[in-house]
């Protein structure tokens, strides 16, 4: 339950969170390293959870924080490990390793 804040402050906070979410969503698509992309998708989920709190939906915010930022990240990371894409450095720049980001 957020306190009754000034509306200008609330709008400003929403603006900052929306900007953070959109930037990390773009980062998911353009980052070379798959681990970083999974981490960025976790950031998207956390930001959306904060937006749910701003929208007075605490149940949904809890679920999104637990599932989206925790469980979904774990599932995707385990998938990365079994796919052999778990590499911390992007020294190998073959197209298979680079992960075929959109070539627009």
């Amino acid at each position: 339950m957020i306190p009754d804040v000034d509306l200008d402050l609330q709008t400003l906070f929403a603006l900052v969170m929306v900007a953070l979410v959109l930037v990390s969503a773009v980062l998911v698509l353009i980052l070379d390293n798959m681990i970083s992309a999974v981490a960025a998708s976790g950031v998207v989920s956390l930001g959306v959870a904060v937006l749910f709190v701003l929208l007075h939906a605490p149940d949904v915010a809890m679920t999104e924080a637990v599932v989206g930022a925790g469980l979904s990240g774990v599932v995707l990371a385990l998938g990365l490990r079994r796919l052999g894409l778990w590499q911390l450095d992007a020294t190998d720049t073959s197209p298979e390793r680079r992960g075929g980001k959109p070539d627009a």
Partner: peptide
């Protein structure tokens, strides 16, 4: 969800496909 995660966490066998560049790296 616990069963699903343990299934995904289990280590696979070696690669069964002929492409050598895609070996699995469990770290």
């Amino acid at each position: 969800l616990a069963g699903l995660m343990t299934q995904l966490a289990e280590q696979p066998a070696g690669p069964q496909h002929p492409h050598p560049q895609a070996e699995d790296r469990g770290s």
